[in-house]
Design a protein around this nucleic acid. Structure first.
Lengths: 122, 122
DNA sequence: ACCGAGTGCTTGGTATGCCAAGCGGGAGAA
DNA sequence: TTCTCCCGCTTGGCATACCAAGCACTCGGT
């Protein structure tokens, strides 16, 4: 059985190919737009290579979707169950808050996590 | 100015290192937990290599954060200068976080506001 | 018929991700 | 002091990401 990761690679590739066809683009057109060689794009779409984040990002941009969507669809960002969505949501809000310094962010997040684990423990 | 991408690599590495130290882990401990060799983790933290998404994911898991957060922090997911507005987004996130008690929410928000006014007064 | 232009895929090479082994230094114990 | 253990970092090599060039096919046009 194909290991879990190959599956996700396949899904990622299929997603990209679907999006490309949805945008009525040829493989070569997209490859040029995304500044990726067409052979490599072909291999990515067939799931036989794992593209780097930079490449995924570039492809996503060319397809007018977010890299987060591509990777998320393929289940490459969130992990199984665990790690409730609430965690990243509020932590991310803190981290992307431009009105705080890095140290303050650390502090807030640290306290936040302490609360959570304390709650989870009782 | 150094290539835009190297910057993000640096941020990613710094973020990982910060999170690791926040979790009071040595580089070797994290490397074993994340199933990544310690030399490579070292290089990643110093921003001189771009890790694959599989590795980022693995590290994220070991740090109890989402891969989305790590990549997002480094600006590797979103493209346009999202700016995020963030103004009261953080408070909203805290208040709607089901994993916190009301008292904890009050406490966090209170600290958060203190930080903001302190910064604004500089 | 032959063509030219488009499609996706294969092939070889170079660059980079990633690891096992080893290095030098700092801190505590005998 | 030396011994031992842990720290982070460097090195050399194998595995994989990525590209330039070329292959095989289809479809309209002449």
């Amino acid at each position: 059985m194909s290991d879990d990761w190959s599956n996700r690679l396949g899904v990622l590739g299929a997603t990209i190919r679907r999006q490309r066809q949805l945008a009525q683009m040829s493989l070569r057109q997209l490859s040029e737009l995304a500044q990726v060689s067409n052979p490599y794009l072909s291999q990515i779409e067939r799931g036989l290579h794992e593209p780097s984040v930079r490449v995924v990002r570039s492809i996503a941009k060319a397809l007018n979707v977010s890299a987060e969507e591509l990777l998320g669809d393929a289940g490459m960002l969130d992990d199984e169950a665990e790690a409730a969505s609430a965690v990243s949501t509020t932590e991310e809000a803190i981290r992307s808050d431009s009105s705080l310094t890095d140290e303050q962010k650390d502090s807030l997040v640290s306290v936040y996590r302490a609360y959570r684990t304390a709650n989870h423990a009782n």
